[in-house]
């Protein structure tokens, strides 16, 4: 099934977007995808401050429930707020993965947030999120993005003319190498 993937920077500005996976979106759906992703940012921003449960072995869910299982536990603790799902996760990148965060009709939305506030999101046409593969995909793309940041020609701090309303943020990623590598990662992990 097709997937629509995007990296969203500060000010909701998409830095990169791509269609991955097999199959193709219908034209109507293709138009709708960015809006679905954009609307999911609200949920992600709410989720990223939820505390992880003390004794949770994993943040993953098996595709059934929403909000990566963490939200429920967070809710069970009565909110309270914490720093980016806190340090209780097993590995550093584990708590970046938020899992399935939203759905719209038959579409599921999964997300991954970096410590710099960058959000990686994907609309799954199948409506199913395979957490293990998805997490690997996100982690590898995150790594790739960090490498892109190190490119001296990439303006990560802000481009004066890159944004219309004068908001300073990272420049959109236009590198073809980045695009082809993301697609290669997708071929490896997403089916």
């Amino acid at each position: 099934m097709p997937e629509y993937f995007a990296i969203v920077g500060p000010g909701d500005r998409p830095l990169y977007e791509s269609e991955l996976g097999r199959g193709a979106w219908t034209p109507e759906q293709r138009e709708l995808n960015p809006f679905v992703l954009h609307s999911s940012l609200d949920v992600i921003e709410d989720l990223q401050w939820q505390l992880l449960p003390e004794n949770s072995d994993t943040v993953s869910n098996t595709g059934g429930g929403e909000f990566g299982g963490a939200a429920q536990s967070g809710a069970a603790q009565g909110g309270g707020g914490g720093f980016l799902r806190s340090h209780r996760a097993k590995t550093e990148t584990d708590n970046c993965y938020l899992g399935r965060v939203d759905h719209f009709y038959g579409l599921a939305v999964s997300a991954y947030t970096t410590y710099s506030g960058l959000k990686l999101l994907m609309v799954h046409g199948s409506g199913i999120v395979d957490d293990a593969n998805c997490r690997s995909f996100y982690q590898e793309v995150h790594e790739l993005y960090v490498k892109t940041l190190m490119n001296p020609f990439y303006s990560a701090g802000g481009s004066a003319n890159g944004s219309g309303s004068g908001t300073i943020g990272p420049a959109p990623i236009t590198s073809r190498a980045f695009d082809s590598r993301v697609k290669a990662i997708a071929r490896r992990h997403l089916r």
Binding site: A6, G11, D12, R13, P14, E17, E31, P34, F35, H38, N161, G162, S163, G164, S165, P172, T174
Partner: peptide
């Protein structure tokens, strides 16, 4: 959707996907 009603043209940057969303 943070669309400024001022009709002053933007600096030219075709890669800004956000503008495409705004356009829709």
């Amino acid at each position: 959707y943070k669309i400024d009603s001022n009709t002053e043209p933007l600096a030219h940057n075709e890669d800004d996907n956000w503008l495409k969303i705004q356009k829709k």
